[in-house]
């Protein structure tokens, strides 16, 4: 029974009560993923599983046997930041930083959803194949990640800068 975390295979816990979040933080000593509310309301524990964003606090680790988990530590580290991490610094996308790893993992999962054409609550035309990367779309899609410092404007700026140019380039190439 193993799970892959940031590229390394690790053993799953014997006790099925252990959440994916506690496995990451307590057993694997990867404290980047944060425990905010521990009840699925704040998004601070967001990680990527096979590229999809999920809440690790509501996930029992045993359910994820054989899956590949990416945490903030797997995205970038000091000296080798992920472009979105650098953009968060540039745009003041945080104050205390507690929600930041969840925000960044969530935004990376969101970018893949947009690439796939997944609609959102504010998408006006459900039949459209492409999603406009508007501020309203970004805010709605990031609404599962709360920031109590109120850095949401900087967060959206960072995400827009990191992902919008690529989308524009992709459209120009078509």
């Amino acid at each position: 029974m193993t799970i892959t975390v940031n590229g390394a295979a690790v053993s799953l816990p014997n006790d099925p009560r252990v959440s994916l979040l506690d496995l990451l933080r307590e057993d694997l000593h990867l404290p980047g993923t944060k425990k905010g509310c521990n009840q699925g309301a704040c998004g601070a524990c967001t990680v990527l599983v096979d590229g999809e964003r999920i809440l690790s606090c509501l996930a029992l680790a045993v359910q994820f046997e054989g899956r590949s988990v990416t945490t903030i530590e797997g995205l970038g580290m000091p000296g080798a930041l992920h472009p979105l991490q650098a953009a968060f610094v540039e745009h003041d996308g945080f104050q205390c930083g507690y929600c930041t790893p969840g925000q960044i993992c969530s935004a990376i999962g969101m970018a893949e959803e947009i690439r796939r054409g997944v609609p959102s609550h504010v998408t006006s035309d459900l039949s459209s194949e492409t999603i406009a990367l508007s501020r309203d779309e970004l805010r709605e899609r990031m609404s599962g990640n709360l920031c109590r410092c109120g850095a949401h404007n900087g967060i959206i700026d960072a995400i827009a800068e990191t992902f919008a140019p690529k989308t524009a380039l992709a459209e120009a190439a078509e």
Binding site: I54, L126, R141
Partner: peptide, 22 residues
């Protein structure tokens, strides 16, 4: 999305993207 849009709309109005993925 095209034949039962009320269903897409209802799901997208619920929870957050992370929860809908799970």
């Amino acid at each position: 999305r095209t034949r039962y849009p009320a269903l897409s709309r209802a799901i997208l109005a619920g929870a957050s993207a992370q929860i809908r993925n799970m």
